[in-house]
Design a binder for these strands. Structure first.
Lengths: 166, 166
DNA sequence: AAATTAGATGTATATATTTGCACCCTGAAT
DNA sequence: ATTCAGGGTGCAAATATATACATCTAATTT
């Protein structure tokens, strides 16, 4: 089955986006709590699926003085340090993660979002970035030779608009 | 009692240091596993205490492709996928160009031209070129191992006469 | 010295999370 | 049309983790 399936997947995608948003904006200490929030928002699924969603989103759980343990998104562990400052919204609609290997980076997105994000990256026309190739949920970013991982990261660190508010 | 107590506390401190070290250098997926490592290292305590230690260290647990879920230390989440950041919009137009990096070349084209050009390149069946991957406006050309940049450039020049390096 | 206090820890238990298995759905292949 | 293949889910059981409660120890106070 090709990743292009956006039919029943869309529901899942919606759910993943919502899960992420909730985690991002609230201190959630367990899946049941999160599940009930989602249920109230009209979603209908089980805790088992939520567990899988959280894994898919690479959500982590850290200790929190106030609520014991809370979920956090990758890159936002700042909350555990109290760096509540200005954690710029690292999240674009659909953006999931980024990894580096050799002189390139691989961005994972929710199904269907790769080309949109890649388009924005291309739009930056960064010197560091030679080009991008987007599939359905993956973007390959090729860095210019001599560009360090930090440079590439810094270049990429400036693209993804703010997320939508529901 | 002040935190300065260094007597029997020393043991705890030692333990905490060890716990941190182990988490830092290994992919540990659960407390039992960690506990047995510590036990082998001469420590003697229970899972409950370990749970408390982890909380004290603000250790987090994230998903890991290899081991399911692993512990990470704050600030050490480099292992955690995705240093999520943002990508900002910048309205620009791409241009035709070719660049080299590592053992590959990246060709940028006007939107929609990538596959066409890639098709031509593929058609050359150059020995130097292992393959190409085309997006909408980007082509990634993978060179055979041992092929110099000049060789690759020469091969590509045949396919794209109007090229000009930057 | 006795009483007091607070952190550390074990035990047992409660709570939370993950996962094997079966099933369903949809696109791809025959 | 039929078969196949793979992802997504629910259910229930397996695992993993947190914590209430009782102790113990060492430092502090009286």
């Amino acid at each position: 089955m090709h990743p292009e399936c956006i039919f029943m997947q869309m529901n899942r995608t919606q759910r993943l986006l919502e899960v992420r948003k909730l985690i991002k904006h609230n201190k959630i200490s367990n899946q049941e709590e999160l599940l009930s929030m989602l249920t109230m928002n009209g979603f209908s699924f089980t805790q088992a699926t939520l567990s899988r969603d959280l894994k898919y989103l690479k959500a982590g759980k850290i200790s929190d003085e106030e609520k014991g343990h809370i979920y956090v998104l990758p890159g936002e562990e700042g909350r555990q340090q109290g760096n509540h400052d200005e954690i710029k919204d690292a999240v674009t609609r659909g953006y999931l993660s980024i990894d580096y290997t050799g002189n390139m980076a691989v961005i994972k997105t929710l199904p269907g979002f790769a080309s949109g994000i890649a388009y924005r990256i291309d739009g930056m026309k960064s010197f560091e970035i030679l080009g991008t190739i987007a599939g359905d949920d993956t973007i390959l970013i090729i860095a210019r030779e001599g560009i360090s991982r930090q440079d590439l990261h810094r270049a990429l660190t400036k693209a993804i608009p703010e997320e939508e508010s529901r």
